[in-house]
Design a protein around this nucleic acid. Structure first.
Lengths: 266, 266
DNA sequence: GACATCACATTGTCCTGACATGTGGGGTTT
DNA sequence: AAACCCCACATGTCAGGACAATGTGATGTC
């Protein structure tokens, strides 16, 4: 299947185990403002995604690839490295670079529930239950790294799909960070609004647990009392290290589970 | 399209970027087999960890740093980049590189419960309930990507801390992959044994959910029937893309929660 | 005083070149 | 035939330079 006649290596010294990627029409546009390594990385990723680069196949050596594209080896290496970081390629010294053959999905982004649901075609809806400011409790102040009693914005939302509740979300933000319109909150996710306001999200610390539902929680989520609930607490930081959001979320375990992909960092 | 430019980049004053270019005594050892960029990265990480590089402080420009250490700029950049990937540093064109000031922990490694507990000083113990081979069920075969009915090794374990059960773990491995001694399984984690056998773990796909305990589960974990349980299913792949392990784990929600750090990939 | 402009500092990108190190095949020796 | 050695090959590491892009702050202009 993956062995085909060797033509360009000139049959010189060794049979070559599996030469691949011989004549994929990679080409870069030097007049484009997009970095060259990035153009190449995207073309490689696309080729992998569409099966033009078979899983397990070798990528051909960097020097030859650089020469064919008119690029320098560091540029090609940068492109390859970015895909290695994504988990699409594996490098082996002395062997070559090959396409990993597993169903690698997105490696756990800092995603909003809203986007997740939308991507799954679930047509999410949001009902804003509360949107106002209040003095920070000790717990919230500690999570956001601010003084207890400072004003924070509190948002309580119910997330629904197909008319049924899916999760109850409670978020706290430093008061002056952002003015949040309830109408906009019902149309999109919180993270998208924050990004739109010039806040660059950088990292988050999460804790995922479980507990049984109280009577009120059950009523709100249309679950019986004592049903299993999936809980998550998350503190999100921007690129200056400032905490910009703290949230306590409750999901119906019967209708939601966290799925994600991990990569090992060598 | 997630980000769109909005002019509300408020005049909120950021804490002054201290132009602090600490002249720490970084030095590399050229006679060492350890790569120079790696030596530098470790020294930087250590300096950040121990507070010798204050959060928010600038790192001094790359060219000057390279000159001071007798290294080339690409080497210094490689060191810095590795810390940026870890989330410890942030680069800004035109500004400089600064230490992010948040309590960044390990960004969610592919960790074993055993190591996690050991790191937390919990002195974990393992009781192997079952360790034998059986034909793969449809579910297991699908997860491992092998034929239904192939022999797989089944391991059922109870993980305890302080004499109390913490989790029930059930794992399936392709039969010929590894010979697992029950005695060794009681002394360490499964992943450590696999790594020791020359298997390089590469990625994993996880699902975390919750449900209530059945009577038998409750008895095994010393929880009442109906208690909330945290469930996880995980398929682990090695660097060739082969599935090497599939596991179904059940944790006592009253005693365990998943905690992890996420990084946004730009 | 408000605003546009320019110089400067710093990272981003890209190049050429060199040597080191681990892998695996083929030839040689035992 | 089996064991060993050697060498080509691929990636890993490192150097040094050049120019581009961008945020900051000072300068100048209206």
């Amino acid at each position: 299947m993956s062995d085909f006649p060797v033509s360009f290596t000139g049959g010189y010294s060794r049979p070559v185990p599996k030469p691949e990627s011989a004549s994929l029409d990679f080409a870069v546009d030097r007049s484009s403002p997009v970095p060259l390594y990035y153009q190449l990385a995207q073309q490689l990723e696309s080729a992998i995604e569409h099966g033009r680069l078979a899983p397990g196949s070798l990528l051909g050596n960097e020097i030859e690839l650089a020469g064919r594209l008119g690029l320098s080896r560091p540029t090609v290496r940068q492109a390859i490295q970015s895909l290695v970081d994504k988990g699409l390629l594996v490098r082996r010294r002395g062997i070559g670079t090959q396409v990993v053959h597993s169903q690698v999905k997105r490696p756990l982004e800092l995603s909003s529930l809203y986007d997740d649901l939308q991507a799954a075609g679930q047509s999410p809806a949001t009902r804003v239950l509360r949107n106002e400011t209040e003095p920070a409790s000790a717990e919230v102040a500690a999570a956001l790294g601010i003084a207890e009693g400072s004003e924070v914005q509190v948002i309580e939302r119910l997330r629904l799909t197909h008319g049924e509740p899916m999760a109850y979300l409670c978020n706290y933000l430093p008061a002056e960070l952002l003015d949040l319109d309830s109408a906009r909150l019902e149309e999109t996710g919180l993270y998208r609004l924050m990004r739109g306001a010039g806040i660059t999200l950088h990292s988050a610390r999460q804790a995922v647990g479980a507990r049984t539902a109280t009577a009120e929680e059950g009523e709100q989520l249309m679950e019986p009392e004592g049903a299993a609930l999936l809980t998550m607490q998350r503190t999100t930081y921007d690129d200056t290290g400032r905490a910009v959001e703290y949230g306590t979320h409750i999901y119906r375990a019967s209708r939601y589970a966290f799925e994600f992909q991990l990569l090992v960092r060598p």
